[in-house]
Each structure stands twice: as structure tokens, then as C-alpha cells.
Design a protein around this nucleic acid. Sequence first.
DNA 1: GAATTTCTGTACCGACCGCTATATAAATGC
DNA 2: GCATTTATATAGCGGTCGGTACAGAAATTC
Lengths: 198, 198
Amino acid sequence: MLDTEKIKRRGRPRGFDRDEALEKAQTLFHAHGYEGVGVAALAEAMGINPPSLYAAFGSKAALYDEVLARYGQSALPVMGLLTPDADTAEALKALLREAARLYADDSQAIGCMVLEGARGTDADATRCAQSRKAAARQQIADFVALRHPDKADLVADYMVMLMSGLSADARAGTPPDRLGAVADMGGLAIEAMLGGRT
Amino acid sequence: MLDTEKIKRRGRPRGFDRDEALEKAQTLFHAHGYEGVGVAALAEAMGINPPSLYAAFGSKAALYDEVLARYGQSALPVMGLLTPDADTAEALKALLREAARLYADDSQAIGCMVLEGARGTDADATRCAQSRKAAARQQIADFVALRHPDKADLVADYMVMLMSGLSADARAGTPPDRLGAVADMGGLAIEAMLGGRT
DNA sequence: GAATTTCTGTACCGACCGCTATATAAATGC
DNA sequence: GCATTTATATAGCGGTCGGTACAGAAATTC
């Protein structure tokens, strides 16, 4: 899996940087969604032609999958808040606040790419995104289960649901301050469910 | 506006029931979203041909708009919970519970057609849906403002955000009982914000 | 050098998109 | 009857979709 190194391969070498191309694709997918951007637009933004895209990534859906993986790594700082020694409720509230801030930050693209991607029409694309959504949910559930095993599933469901709503509202244009206030209000339910400073 | 009656109009009479056709279109739009269903599929389900569709409704977007209006009326029972004499928190919690039940009910279509429609790629369709979403939000804000004017906007934002998340999870396949539990947990934030039995 | 392998650009495929030109069918007004 | 008006069915418009056949270019191995 670690043959990303520049092994001398025979044949004509690729004329573009694969990761740079992925980054351009990520920008477009995040901004317009899987169905909102076509292969032609992707190829143009990546500075290549469709055949090169298909040679390097296989298909539009496969490219999307790689982009989602890349996004998952860059969005890891969010999940990094869930360290085992953190206070459960405080960490979840911080996660909500950070999600709201991130989703409304229009310096990049609006909303969560995974959660938005999980709602599309295309079967392949939604399957990819939903699997990553489920993985994130499980991460949250495992974290909550450290101290509240009986409430882990419910709280994880609640967190994901809330983040889906936050992402939707962010994309609908809700400004950062209002989104943050809503996220904080969502945190009240966590406190009520888990209690403060447990 | 009330010329829905069977006024004798000259020319060949329409060969299909307009409202029945709308109902079929509603089913398809709700199940697959605006972008997920084409004019050909709509026309076939309505039992007509594309030209009849355009003659009767104008365009795909206009048909969608009428369908949304129809949906808004059939979904009114939900908003009917917000009567002026109802307890604020209790009514909102009941609304959440009812929304969760309705969204997960697969006897018809999954999720909220307005909230899902507000997230699409097509500019016209999302504008229609977002305007109805905003109207519903205002209805909630007005209801809350009756007794908690300073918190009306925040609580309305929170309610809409939560319902968006519920609708997304419902479409992702979350079963009714889990969805209901999450909605109830969301209600805890309302109690914390407005207090019980105010 | 030649043969092989791989990538790249042009140009295009069939399928579907929303939509409509055209001609005909079925009603009314006179 | 006849003209007018409206709705229908057939067939097809230009455009975009995801994806590719093909030939040439650029690297390797021998």
C-alpha cells in the first residue's frame, strides 16, 4: 500500500501531480457536490483531459472516493478532540462548536463533504459517503462508551444528526455566529443526557 | 384564484385529473428528489406525455413548486401542533417527535421533501424549497416569540437544524425507534433553554 | 537502435437531460 | 355545418452526461 514512492515505472511518466489534481477535485466536489460537477469540469480544473483522469483514477466515483479519503484525513483534527482522557460532554460540545465553525467557514467550501455526499442521488457516491459517515459515528460511539456505555449509541446518533443539520444550514447560508449558537444549544442536550463534568 | 371549479372551457378538455397527476409527481419527487427524477419518468408515472405535462404545469421546476405546495398542505398537521395556547416547550418537543415519526414512516416516502429539496444542485428547485423552509422556520419563530421573544430566533434555528438532521438520518436508513430517541434527546435542549412548563 | 509500455490529446460515443415543433383529436361558439 | 380553441401523441431538438477508441508522444528494457 506504500508504493506511493516514485518507483521507476516503465512507459511515459504521468504529466501531472496526482495529489495536486486530487486537491482541485476536492475543491469542486466540496463546493458543488458529486452530482453538481461533471467529469469535464473536473478534468479542466485538474489541468488534464478526461482520458488522463480515467487512467489515473478509474472513474468519477473512484475519484470521489479518493477525495473523500483525503477529506477525512484533513478533517481528522475535528475527531482529534475525542481523546480518551477528555471529559465526555465537554469534548462533544467542543466538537459541535468546531464543526459549526468549520462548516460555516467560507474560506474553503461550506458544510461537511461527507455528510452532504451521503444525501445525493447517485447510488455509488452515496454509498461511499455513507460508509464514512458510519465510521465517524462509530468513532463517536466508542468515545462515549468509555464512560457511558449505555448511552453511546444514542449520543452518537444525536451527534451525527446534529452535525448533518448544521452542515445543511451552513450550506443554506446560515451565518457563522447563528450556526455556533445553534450548536451550543445542541450541546445543552448533551449536558442534560450525560451530566456536567462526569 | 378559485377557478378550480369545472368551468366549461372551450377546446378539447384535459384527459387526466390534474390533482391525481400532482400526487403521482409528488411521490416520485419525494422518493428520488428533484434531480433524481426526469421529466420522462414523471410523465410516465402521471400517465401522460411530456407535452401534456408542460401544457398543464409549465415546466419541471413549476411542477415541483406545485408539488411542494401540495406537500406543505398535507404536512400542515405537523405545524398544527403550534397552537397559541400550547405550552411552548411541550409543543416543540411534540413537533420533533411527530417529525421523526413522519420522516421514518416508509409507508410513503422517507424524510422531509422540503428540507431535502433545499439541498439539491438545481438553482430553481433549491430556491423553491428554501423559501418554504424559511416560511416554516418563521412559523416556529412566531410561535416561540409568543412567550419567549428573546429566544425565538435561536430556538427556531435549532428546530429547523434538528429536523434537517432527522430527515437526513431517516433517508440514510435510521429506523423509526432510533430516530424517535434522537428527537427526544434533541428535546432536552429545548427544555434546558425554555424551562419545563413555563 | 528497436520493441514495449504507459500516458496524453483529439474527437467522439450512446444515453439521457429538459423541452418543443408539428400535426391531429376533441371540445365549444356561431 | 364550420371556425376556433385547447389538449393530445409522435418524434425530435440542442445540450450535457459519464466514459472511450484511437493515434501519437515519452519513457523504459533490450
